[in-house]
Design a protein around this nucleic acid. Sequence first.
DNA 1: CGGGATCCCGCTAGATACTG
DNA 2: CAGTATCTAGCGGGATCCCG
Lengths: 127, 127
Amino acid sequence: MAPEQEVVRRVFENTEECPIRNVVAQIGDKWSVLILFALVDGADRFNALKSRIIGISQRMLTRTLRDLEREGYVTRTVYPEVPVRVEYALTPMGRDLAKPLYQLVSWAGEHHEQIKQARQDYDKRSD
Amino acid sequence: MAPEQEVVRRVFENTEECPIRNVVAQIGDKWSVLILFALVDGADRFNALKSRIIGISQRMLTRTLRDLEREGYVTRTVYPEVPVRVEYALTPMGRDLAKPLYQLVSWAGEHHEQIKQARQDYDKRSD
DNA sequence: CGGGATCCCGCTAGATACTG
DNA sequence: CAGTATCTAGCGGGATCCCG
């Protein structure tokens, strides 16, 4: 069986053991990928991330960072200075995840115009 | 500027032109990736898809197929027989999208155990 | 067979206010 | 600075019924 077939087969397995339903669902939310990419260049602080990721709320940044930390993609380091400094960074696994993610985002960038055109055509047809 | 940098920079642009917020977010829902993978082997009918993708409801299969069709990933062909037959298939762009998607899902499969371990460790630490 | 229409609910995520 | 707590609207998504 080709490796593609093997992966595709697992897509349809039970919820608990399916890597798509279990891993992709985790980073498929509104902010996870944005945060991961915001950290590929190196560690950054909470408020710095917040101002770089336009539109994210304090609550969502905190929550998503916690989730990414729980998955093992991100580390959280507290420096007990005054005022306190908290730095977030990618783990080795997080950096590794960024590779296939970069392939996907890169694909999205290349096909963005084609997709927007497809949307227009579809909407025009269904008038 | 390195190509990674170029993509990453675009991540933080305004909503309309950001491929992550606009393309990746689109397929980040609960069923899109599952349906795309269900079609990589070839066209399939509505109810056949429904029984292969365990747990999906009629409504969500219809809705997600419509979205994928609108994006330009999927075609819908009606054969006016009795009873009617409707076949869904990937477009060339849809098949192309499956490649980076396969890379990501493959990564997820390989790191699934490590991630589950990370979750356990995190939950144990926060007792 | 392949949906459309409707109802309904839980959870996501935004806004706001407060804190060590 | 880096959060936590609370409230709430909106939407994703399931169940059910109906139809060509």
